[in-house]
């Protein structure tokens, strides 16, 4: 799949934002006044900014409101609802933290749950696609949730959660890479099944239907070199999980927060880029590309 910057930005930032918001909602980082305003503001900025970025890849963003209509069947619609609900439900808690109203935490907890739901929905948008076998697994939403949780924990320097989550995410990433590599073959879709021509022998492309690119080839067919991918994988695990853990363990909180977040984000972007770039859509079969 084409690793579109807007989608990478959207998923990484909104995931991180919801992670931060969830931590704050749960009251795991007791802050007040300007500090609370800053922390909540950061969480909101990331979440809303990410969601905003997602509209860049829409053909008709002015109709984005319509995306709320199909919550019964569409994970994208559910994501829209969950995101908005999380942002709304968390608002009183945020205000309460900033202005010291002391509202009961239960609302924050509910908001945190909605934030998690939003992230889950984002993950499910990808995980539901049979057409992309690498994504089509519970590990995809688990990854998204783990990224959000770890991001939240790093930004807010919640130890030892962060350290534990680093280990979990690292494990999930490695597992996802490994499982993902065999997923396409395991799904059983081949150029033979895609065309039904395997009855004549193994099919190979003779001529493409168009000599230039089209929407499908641009959007769904992306080829990333194996060596390049292997390097990026290592980088993703190191930057997203291992290095932040080390930084958090070694450095004092304020410095660690900034440094670990930056490193983690770099890792998250690498991982998310790979998430798309390595994902192969079955339509590539028709083009002799997978």
């Amino acid at each position: 799949m084409h690793p579109a910057p807007s989608v990478i930005l959207f998923t990484v930032l909104s995931g991180l934002g919801f992670g931060v918001l969830a931590v704050l909602g749960l009251g795991a980082l007791p802050l007040a006044g300007w500090a609370a305003a800053f922390a909540w503001g950061l969480g909101y900025a990331l979440a809303v900014g990410g969601l905003g970025a997602s509209t860049f890849h829409l053909g008709n963003p002015q109709r984005a409101w319509r995306a709320f209509s199909q919550w019964r069947t569409s994970w994208l619609s559910r994501e829209a609802w969950a995101s908005v609900a999380a942002l709304l439900v968390l608002a009183p808690t945020a205000m309460s933290d900033v202005f010291g109203w002391g509202l009961p935490r239960i609302l924050g907890g509910l908001g945190a749950a909605l934030a998690a739901l939003a992230v889950l929905c984002t993950g499910m948008i990808y995980a539901q696609l049979r057409t992309v076998p690498r994504w089509n697994h519970w590990i995809t939403p688990a990854l998204f949730l783990a990224f959000a949780a770890l991001g939240g924990a790093i930004v807010t320097v919640r130890l030892p959660w962060a350290l534990g989550l680093c280990a979990i995410l690292a494990g999930l990433l490695v597992a996802a890479f490994q499982r993902g590599d065999g997923a396409f073959a395991a799904r059983g879709a081949t150029l033979g099944s895609a065309t039904g021509l395997d009855r004549l022998g193994a099919p190979a492309v003779f001529e493409l239907p168009h000599s230039g690119p089209n929407y499908l080839t641009r959007e769904m067919i992306f080829v990333v070199g194996r060596r390049h991918a292997a390097k990026l994988r290592v980088l993703a695990v190191v930057l997203a999980c291992l290095l932040p853990a080390a930084i958090l363990a070694a450095l004092p909180a304020p410095v660690a927060a900034v440094l670990a977040t930056a490193v983690h984000l770099a890792g998250a972007f690498a991982a998310r880029w790979l998430f798309f770039a390595e994902a192969e859509h079955v339509v590539g079969l028709y083009y002799g590309r997978r």
Binding site: G59, R66, L129, T131, Y215, L216, E219, M220, H281, V283
Partner: peptide, 27 residues
């Protein structure tokens, strides 16, 4: 008239049967 051009349906289609119109932004 209702399509926002998110492209998700094209991702969901195994057969490459959907193409986004780059000028109108609809599927």
């Amino acid at each position: 008239d209702a399509c926002i051009g998110c492209g998700l349906c094209a991702w969901a289609c195994p057969y490459g049967a959907r193409e986004m119109d780059a000028a109108a932004g609809v599927m």
